[in-house]
Amino acid sequence: MAAGGDHGSPDSYRSPLASRYASPEMCFVFSDRYKFRTWRQLWLWLAEAEQTLGLPITDEQIQEMKSNLENIDFKMAAEEEKRLRHDVMAHVHTFGHCCPKAAGIIHLGATSCYVGDNTDLIILRNALDLLLPKLARVISRLADFAKERASLPTLGFTHFQPAQLTTVGKRCCLWIQDLCMDLQNLKRVRDDLRFRGVKGTTGTQASFLQLFEGDDHKVEQLDKMVTEKAGFKRAFIITGQTYTRKVDIEVLSVLASLGASVHKICTDIRLLANLKEMEEPFEKQQIGSSAMPYKRNPMRSERCCSLARHLMTLVMDPLQTASVQWFERTLDDSANRRICLAEAFLTADTILNTLQNISEGLVVYPKVIERRIRQELPFMATENIIMAMVKAGGSRQDCHEKIRVLSQQAASVVKQEGGDNDLIERIQVDAYFSPIHSQLDHLLDPSSFTGRASQQVQRFLEEEVYPLLKPYESVMKVKAELCL
């Protein structure tokens, strides 16, 4: 049975990233139509530049190519590739079939990587351009969430054990800070992308030097003109047959890092959902379990974690691919890159769409948070109580021993009897502590235990987050809708 299948058929496997999760716009960027249309555009740009620099290419040939950029006979191309065992030459023939007058000058002087690699770089750039505003929107939604809850005390956790208090907004800023680093890295790697350009079979530009009869300047002009037509500021000066596969490492490393950030955020949300302090959106008709109707599973956060793990592992592909590119190139890269580049971007696209949807509907339960604080705060307040007693004339050592005994009794009630923490009640009825009984409410005010959390939130948002989001103001209103 021949390899390949009808990918629109229910009898043929289709990647869930495309069929179930990723956005239509990201799927289109990695589609065959987008790819092969870009090949034709690159052939047109090459012909236009070659004509401008004096090669015998007519206006009629150029116009014929322009008129057929979208006229792609995919069936013919597939048949040609089956016959020739070469995808680029299959599309040269297919393009030439609908451009008979231009057929002889299509791909003039070029090698397969002229269309293959340059198209990949265009796709990487455009895919990054799709991700950047999506990530900015996630940051914006979380920034709104953090600002609104900047002063809401909550129990902090280290080692997932109760620690000092923080605020809900401050905790959210930990998430935002990681995503801001990801946004900066995505922008950097996007701006650092260079075009492969017009380089020939081993990167020496020998074929173009021959076409222009040894004119170095025209060869350099050709490279520059096509690079500018493709919208790049610069091209690699040095290439082998391909652009260095280190570029793929750079791009997928940034995406993998984004995956790590999203995994951490969504894990926190899942843990908070278990504590009943916070939940992701839950639709009115949504079913959490087929057997347990009360369940409210954090399905979206779980999906993000599941896909983020996949995204983090994909960076190993370009690392290994770059390491086995012998001399000017081997074909070890080809099949692998067809999979890992598309999957990385479709996965990143999915987790950003999902995280935006989550961040637009996060639900906080202040009463649950308050109750958990009441359970733990008495123990945390013991040092403040000791200091207040010393100020009232008591002995630190005597007070410490009193607190120690009462704390152990209260802990026994919590752990052995399943009761509430009654340390404060014990202190309130103990005559030894009568000098500070009137101060206990103040000493137990949760806001006095959150330090500068709310001020940190305000400063972080104003100095770091809002300036970073400013270039994306025009796209901030787009909502994230999930079908599944």
Score class of each variant (00 low, 15 high):
Lys199Gly: 03
Leu341Lys: 13
Asp6Cys: 07
Gly197Ile: 01
Asp6Thr: 13
Arg85Ala: 01
Gln325Ala: 12
Met389Tyr: 06
Arg14Ala: 14
Met316Gly: 10
Gln416Asn: 12
Lys470Ala: 14
Pro318Thr: 08
Ser15Lys: 06
Ser19Val: 05
Ala143Pro: 00
Ile386Val: 14
Tyr114His: 03
Arg270Leu: 00
Gly214Arg: 11
Thr154Ala: 11
Glu464Asn: 06
Ile176Ala: 09
Tyr21Pro: 00
Leu155Lys: 01
Asp120Gly: 07
Ile238Gln: 06
Pro378Phe: 03
Asn357Cys: 14
Ser448Gly: 15
Leu258Met: 14
Arg188Lys: 10
Gly197Met: 00
Ile105Trp: 03
Ala344Cys: 04
Glu48Ala: 06
Ala256Gln: 04
Gly394Trp: 08
Ser434Phe: 11
Leu468Glu: 13
Val189Asp: 07
Arg303Cys: 05
Cys399Pro: 04
Arg83Gly: 15
Ile249Asp: 04
Gln428Arg: 13
Arg83Ala: 13
Phe449Ser: 04
Gln455Met: 10
Ile123Asp: 01
Asp73Met: 06
Ser261His: 01
Ala90Trp: 02
Glu376Gly: 03
Glu213Cys: 14
Phe36Asn: 07
Leu252Lys: 04
Arg396Tyr: 06
Thr119Ser: 15
Ile176Phe: 03
Met76Gln: 15
Thr267Lys: 03
Glu283Lys: 14
Arg396Glu: 02
Ile237Asn: 09
Phe282Tyr: 13
His217Arg: 13
Phe157Cys: 05
Leu444Trp: 10
Asp215Tyr: 10
Arg188Asn: 09
Leu165Gln: 04
Arg141Ser: 15
Gln241His: 00
Ser447His: 15
Gly288Leu: 02
Gly8Ser: 15
Lys470Glu: 14
Lys66Ile: 08
Thr111Gly: 03
Arg188Gln: 08
Glu302Tyr: 01
Pro100Glu: 11
Arg396His: 03
Ala49Lys: 01
Leu135Asp: 04
Leu311Gln: 08
Ala342Gln: 10
Gln41Lys: 12
Gln61Leu: 08
Pro298Thr: 06
Glu425Met: 10
Ser407Ile: 01
Gln320His: 09
Met389Ala: 05
Thr119Pro: 00
His91Lys: 01
Gln456Pro: 02
Glu463Ser: 10
Lys224Thr: 11
Arg426Val: 05
Ala102Lys: 00
Asn118Val: 00
Gln409Ser: 09
Gln408Pro: 04
Gly451Phe: 02
Arg83Cys: 12
Thr204His: 06
Ala322Arg: 03
Tyr114Ala: 00
Arg33Asp: 11
Leu341Phe: 15
Ala453Gly: 12
Phe282Arg: 09
Thr330Cys: 15
Lys101Arg: 13
Phe28Tyr: 13
Gln409Phe: 07
Ala102Pro: 05
Gln184Lys: 11
Glu464Val: 07
Asn421Tyr: 07
